[in-house]
Amino acid sequence: MMAQTLAQTENAPVLEIRGLTQQFGGLTAVNDFNVKLTPGGLSGLIGPNGAGKTTVFNLVSGFYQPTKGQIFIDGVPTAGLKPHKVTALGVARTFQNIRLWNDMTVLDNIRVAQHYRLGYGFFHSIARSKRYQQREDEIAKEAAELLEVFDLQRFALDVPKNLPYGTQRKLEIARALSSHPKLLLLDEPAAGLNSSDVQELIRLIRWIHKKFDVTIWMIEHHMDVMMELCTQIKVIDFGQTIAEGTPETVRNHPAVITAYLGDDNI
């Protein structure tokens, strides 16, 4: 009931996290984390290595069940949902180390990401029913269109493992968008890219943000990427939120400088 009332509120946050805590044994990876992402935003999450950034993403995408706290996607609580259900609610993500299906064609990579809204099941696939034919046509058409806007159509029948690294990154983002997300989580999209690729990535993310009307939340170590793209940045260290605000405030925040560069009072 509560979920519905929240969802109906005007301008409900795409993602709301309240008091999120995740413990692995004795280690507290994330502690009392809170965030509200309004639709259409482009915000960032930064922190030194091991700060718990990816854990937050794993919690949001349903990969872990939180020790404490709640996560709402568009007002719907995700507690107890398996990752594929969370994706169906409108969350898609990419991974720090690219995780494409390397022996499937690029086109199939895009198609399979539409799995939750196939609209047909096992028996339709065997009987090749009318619904199957219709849906497969739509899926193929949509996948081809997506490849075209990403300028990947010439790779449609190649397997991802043969593609250049930057193209694989791009494909992974395209695959994520294939599931029609409201919220796109990018986990270090610039990792392993050279500086000209990084410039292209910045353009790409900005373009996706506009074109697909999607809320983006990203983790990144390249500060120039964050400074250029994000309007809001949250900084965590050892699972604690230590600062948040515009890129400018965050950059000059003493706690952030201490977290990244260490304390000179030692």
Binding site: F63, L100, W101, D108, R111, A113, Q114, L118, A176, S179
Partner: peptide
């Protein structure tokens, strides 16, 4: 079928399959 391609997706990366909405 796209439905059955989920099988190959599981084979190649199960985590990615689950995250990309394959049940």
């Amino acid at each position: 079928s796209t439905f059955g391609k989920g099988v190959s997706a599981i084979c190649q990366d199960e985590v990615a399959a689950e995250i990309m909405s394959v049940n």
